[in-house]
Design a protein around this nucleic acid. Structure first.
Lengths: 196, 196
DNA sequence: GGTAAGTTAGTGATCGCTAACTTACCGCGG
DNA sequence: CCGCGGTAAGTTAGCGATCACTAACTTACC
């Protein structure tokens, strides 16, 4: 079944609300207000709140896959792919801060085993992709040989997560463009260690 | 005012419950059940739920400061301090998994500005300490010169956070000792890049 | 006239928290 | 040694608010 326009609106509203106020503040009423209808109208498009959150995860996975695909087709070396993946993510987050929850799926769904499992899988897949990318970079010679790919993936993804976590906390004051700038210098710092 | 035994019990129960079920599942009733009293009895020891959470943050900050102090007195080089800090944390988390929330204060208190501010400050302080440690390591010669300390701190702390986040998700199956082992190999991987 | 999508009104459950009462222990004057 | 009152810490019962969700009705469109 394809998702209707209203369903997309609802998913997007849930996305934004989670990002702004946290998952514990997400209510059907708030979603309804954001969309511009009353509370029960939401249930014409989703069977339950879990159903909505499930679609939110689907959206996250789709977004990440799209980002990886976009980067893969537009880059020559694995090193470039890594760099442009984070750049794309950073500029995406600058323009739509609500999307940052994509990076932190694990603490969103702790009260639902199925959703938590999918979030965990999503996180592990992301790490696995980066291990592959690092290995590819070593093989093709754009990265230093002898790098521990597991540690490298943790460094890269974990460091970026922490950067984004800090960035979205101090909302307001001169935040515009800062994530992209900080991401750039973070990547420069990392590549000066692992690149060659 | 010093904290009574009951208050310590309550803080510890809140700590554990948050870790096991997430902050959105934390209720006064559950805390009361864990402590072994009825719900209103909790209010003999704390004025509100926010009051409890505030004490939980105090406890987190105290724990981190104690860990840093312990490591500082027992290590010779900055490099050793970094290594033993994460080792101590990892073994601490193995024995008491509930303490892992110390690493993720920022998503616990998003609905309360004061608590969120304190959590943010705590995170930034931790990062600043690691920047100092890295700089000290460079100055004393145990770390490679030319390292970007900002990026290095993000790598280290962010990578460890991600490692712990993954570890605590797959509860149960053969988890014993794995965090310490994984932390060890993560640190080995990082130090092979930044050490000398 | 059937269907999709909205509405108002209201369900039971649970939330943080309070009122009012009980109980146990304490120091102290007679 | 006894009784008295104050206080800390527990109890039962319940408050108003809010939660996810539902029943029943209306409206607009093909």
């Amino acid at each position: 079944m394809q998702t209707s326009e209203r369903q997309k609106e609802i998913i997007q509203a849930a996305f934004d609300l989670i990002s702004e106020q946290g998952i514990q503040e997400l209510t059907i009423k708030k979603i309804a207000q954001a969309v511009g209808v009353t509370e029960p109208a939401i249930y014409r498009h989703f069977t339950s709140k879990v159903d909505i959150l499930s679609s939110v995860i689907d959206e996250m996975i789709a977004q990440r896959n799209a980002a990886l695909l976009q980067v893969r087709s537009g880059s020559s070396t694995a090193r470039d792919m890594i760099r442009s993946f984070f750049s794309v993510q950073a500029s995406l987050f600058e323009s739509r801060p609500s999307l940052t929850i994509m990076l932190f799926p694990e603490d969103l769904f702790r009260n639902n085993d199925e959703l938590l499992g999918r979030a965990t899988t999503m996180m592990e897949e992301t790490l696995a992709r980066f291990r592959e990318l690092l290995q590819a970079g070593i093989d093709e010679g754009s990265l230093k040989p002898g790098i521990d790919c597991g540690a490298g993936a943790l460094m890269l993804v974990g460091g970026f997560r922490l950067l984004v976590a800090s960035w979205r906390l101090d909302a307001g004051k001169g935040r515009a463009g800062r994530l992209e700038a900080d991401t750039g210098s973070f990547l420069a710092g990392v590549f000066s260690l692992i690149g060659r």
